[in-house]
Design a protein around this nucleic acid. Structure first.
Lengths: 221, 221
DNA sequence: CGGGATCCGTTACGATACTG
DNA sequence: CAGTATCGTAACGGATCCCG
């Protein structure tokens, strides 16, 4: 009788899962937390999602008021989180920290773009940042720039380069993975496989310390 | 090729969802957070889950080290969270608070047992409890007892009656729903549709205040 | 009766092809 | 580029049966 598969329970957890519990939906939200994205950008980042599923999931997110379709420049349309959609942030933070318990599978898969790790890095940094910390750091990973804005201990990572950073870390996805797997340390990364530029003096040490601790929280097995 | 539907991505959120992202799994964990449960108890609480799915999900949770099968008294077997499984707590807390944004569906469905609301009540109480608060409260909802243990601001709700409470609130599921929907206030609940017993003097006011605020956070639309 | 296993119709997903 | 359409396959839902 054309009934969708919903839990139809009064429990708020079930109500939440009826909106964001479907396959792919939380990963779409994950990517949208790194800033507005176009359809093809999302599709590229979600290795292997079928176009029709992405269409359907985005449609449901819009319908439920968690995302909206914006008209960007040059007639391109962008999907962005609404205020309500932003409130999935804590859930994704927790999932990222919980998922660190499990060893990743075998082969390294090209993630398509860096959106998939943006919120994870933000979660890990926020976990270890002191409540008073404020800094703007730029990451350039495989030539893709992203900005980590830490404001009074709250961390947000956004794809692009909107704000002038106090520090820039340039490295590769694979090298960063090696760090997150504990194969090399943050110090070795900076020494051998990355470039760290201080645009303002005195941020390098604090940044390095934060990142070391942050990445350690992603791998507490 | 017998490949299960996993994301196979390095992102820890994807790794997390590969363990707990399947349909029903998070709801099973929700119920297990209220204490060890037998198969039939879980099945009754998860209105409509097919037995084979519950079997499969439990098997995967055990395989992934998130739950374990215990041998209880009289040869009954119990499923319980492992330490790793306990770490889904924050995720469920956030889901409960996020899900409060959405209005529940039409019909009131008998939840089968009270496990489904245990972690939600704990989440709401912890959200509003001061970091120094410690108290033990008993809820008896539709004759089912559960214990809310708040320790230094951390809240855990467990089915049963293991600890002597300082206060007992006896009421019905429907009345509690009416409060959570804002139809009646906590004070009206206590006055008309519930019994509040202080086993130690002086806890009633603090308890009532906490519950009012807690339930308000479950309904911030 | 509790704790599942088996079977089968229905629904959702995944891959590819196609269109404005 | 941003989706729609189609179709084979995998997962789910409900029922029935089995076993201690």
């Amino acid at each position: 009788m054309a009934k969708p598969r919903t839990y139809k329970l009064l429990c708020p957890i079930a109500r939440a899962l009826d909106r964001i519990g479907d396959r792919w939906t939380l990963l779409i939200l994950r990517d949208l937390h790194a800033g507005p994205a176009r359809f093809s950008e999302l599709q590229r980042g979600l290795t292997g999602i079928a176009a029709n599923l992405l269409t359907e999931r985005l449609g449901k997110l819009v319908e439920d008021g968690l995302a909206e379709k914006q008209n960007g420049a040059h007639g391109v349309s962008l999907y962005a989180l609404t205020d309500q959609g932003q409130r999935t942030r804590d859930i994704l933070f927790d999932l990222a920290l919980f998922g660190g318990m499990f060893a990743p599978g075998g082969e390294v898969i090209d993630p398509g773009n860096m959106r998939s790790i943006a919120i994870t890095l933000a979660a890990a940094c926020e976990r270890v940042a002191s409540p008073s910390l404020t800094m703007t750091a730029q990451f350039v990973i495989d030539r893709e720039p992203m900005i980590l804005a830490v404001t009074n201990g709250k961390a947000v990572m956004t794809i692009g380069s909107n704000e002038p950073p106090e520090i820039t870390l340039t490295t590769s996805y694979e090298a960063l993975l090696a760090v997150s797997e504990g194969e090399i340390g943050m110090d070795e990364l900076i020494a051998n496989q990355a470039t760290l530029i201080e645009h303002k003096a005195g941020y390098a040490q604090e940044f390095g310390q934060m990142m070391s601790q942050a990445i350690a929280t992603l791998n507490d097995r």
